[in-house]
Structures are given as structure tokens and as C-alpha cells.
Design a protein around this nucleic acid. Structure first.
Ligand SMILES: [Zn+2]
Ligand SMILES: [Zn+2]
Ligand SMILES: [Zn+2]
Ligand SMILES: [Zn+2]
Lengths: 130, 130
DNA sequence: TTTGCAATTGCAAAAATTTGCATTATAAAA
DNA sequence: TTTTATAATGCAAATTTTTGCAATTGCAAA
């Protein structure tokens, strides 16, 4: 390993791709630039980074967890269990909910990438017809 | 496989244990009653059951996803990232939040076991002192 | 600079999970 | 009952992820 730490490469990769990637996808991306890198090094770096809140880890219903770089402006998602459609929602309403939970339970919420599963409007229409 | 389907055994196991189990733990429990059962059979059954909403799947910060039987009265959790403490919360406030999200986004939320990460009050006190 | 310590990495083995395909069981239809 | 179609299961191989341990690196104190 030369100058570039794997963490730095992961951040660059996730920022560049700017989407949700599985740990394997991250590993394969990193390997393009650093062919000798070991998978466990990447996996362990991802784990560290998610603990520090640098990246988010989420199950979006695709089978494997996905990672995404965390920016200043947080976002969250609604995922349709039928068609897989991913709707991105902002912080506002989520923050309000978090505030309520925090006050009631004397608990400080850190969750930075909330995923809610359900049915999108299109799929609900289709289901009603059939 | 005789009469008993693996799904039935999984339901019984999760109901009996009445807690969060990893897929491997479920597999090992099932194997006690059905030594010849194959791991892929259990894993695939768990996947089917979570799709149907019979069991919940969640990351509670322990490394591996955990499964739990879904009852009529839903519950959710707050998980402390520092001490691992798991606080169980009821439906009320969560349901209110879901309703808001549903109306704004024309999306029907199915999520049956919400996990929020953060800091519990005890750990916040400790952190303030140090 | 040198020393010491903690964090990071590589490596190899183990463990856990997934996948493709053949077989078997279940249930509905004829 | 027999036929047919769908779903569940087993099996073996492949893939993905984790783990223990040793070696290396980075950083700061001495
Ligand atoms: Zn996202
Ligand atoms: Zn949909
Ligand atoms: Zn629970
Ligand atoms: Zn705590």
C-alpha cells in the first residue's frame, strides 16, 4: 500500500459512482485501481467507515447490503417491494419523526439513511385491477 | 422431508425463542429437529417468509441480519451504537410517521420492524463526562 | 531521528451464503 | 385416479464474507 489508504479510495469511488454499491462492487472498483488489494482490507475499511458515519449501510431489498457516501444533506428512501422502484425523500419529515422519538425515549438518533419498504402508487393501482 | 415443512419449523422455532436470531442460528435450531435439512433450504425459506411478512429481517448492528416472528402487535427498536442496548418501542409514534410519509409520497408502508441507531441516555451521559 | 503504540493491511483458512440444476412433494385440474 | 403445473428441497460447486495472526504502516512522543 503506497500513499493512498483504502479508505480514501473507497470515499473517492463512492463519491464518483454516487449510488448504492454492495461491498463486493466496492471491492471490485477498488481493485481496478489497486489490483493487489485484499478483499478483507476493503470489507474492514467499509465497516470502520460506516461506524464513523462516513458511509451508510442499508438493505434496499436487493439481497446484499449497499453502501453509499454520506453527504451533508441527508436523504432517505422508500423501496417498492413489488417493482423495486426506489423513491428518494428528504430530511424534513424524517427529522420531525426522529425528534419525537428522541424526546420520548431520551435517545439520540444517528440513523443517516432510512429505508422504508412498501408499495408504490403504480403497483397499488395494478394490484387493485387484478 | 416428511410432513413438517421447514417453514412450519421455522415459525415454531422463532415463536418459541421469541427473540432475534440470525439465519445461521435458525438453521442450527432447525437442524436439531431435522438433522438432514440443508442450509440452503432454511435460507430460502427464511427469504420467502420475510417477503410474505411472516418474519421480519433487520440489521441491529450485530454484523449479521436477524430474523424475528411477526405478531399482530408490531414493535420496533432503538439500538445504541455504543453499548448495543436495544430499546423496544411500540407502534403509535411510528405509525403516525408512516401515515405522513404515505400521504406525502402516495406510498403504502409495509415495514414491520423499524430499527433506528443512535446513542442511549446512559452512553450520552458518559460521553459528556469524558 | 529513534522508539513505541495503535491502526491498517495481507494472507490463508474457515465459515457463511448463494446459485444452478435435478429431484421430490403438493395441490389443482382433468 | 391420473395428469400437470408449481413450489419446495437436496446437493455440490461457486461465491462472498469473516477470522486469526503476523507483518507493515503511520504518527507522535521522547
Ligand atoms: Zn441513498
Ligand atoms: Zn412498485
Ligand atoms: Zn424485534
Ligand atoms: Zn448505550
Amino acid at each position: 500500500m503506497k500513499k493512498s489508504s483504502v479508505e480514501q479510495l473507497i470515499l473517492e469511488t463512492l463519491s464518483r459512482e454516487n449510488t448504492h454499491l454492495t461491498s463486493l462492487q466496492v471491492y471490485e472498483e477498488i481493485r481496478k485501481q489497486l489490483p493487489a488489494v485484499n478483499s478483507s482490507t476493503v470489507y474492514r475499511a467499509l465497516e470502520r467507515m460506516s461506524k464513523r458515519g462516513m458511509v451508510s449501510v442499508s438493505d434496499i431489498g436487493t439481497g446484499a447490503e449497499v453502501f453509499e457516501v454520506v453527504k451533508n444533506e441527508l436523504h432517505h428512501h422508500l423501496v417498492c417491494q413489488e417493482c423495486g422502484r426506489i423513491i428518494t425523500i428528504g430530511q424534513e419529515d424524517v427529522r420531525t419523526f426522529f425528534k419525537v422519538i428522541e424526546q420520548i425515549n431520551d435517545f439520540e438518533v444517528f440513523t443517516n439513511h432510512l429505508i422504508l419498504f412498501g408499495l408504490c402508487s403504480e403497483c397499488r393501482k395494478k394490484d387493485n385491477l387484478s
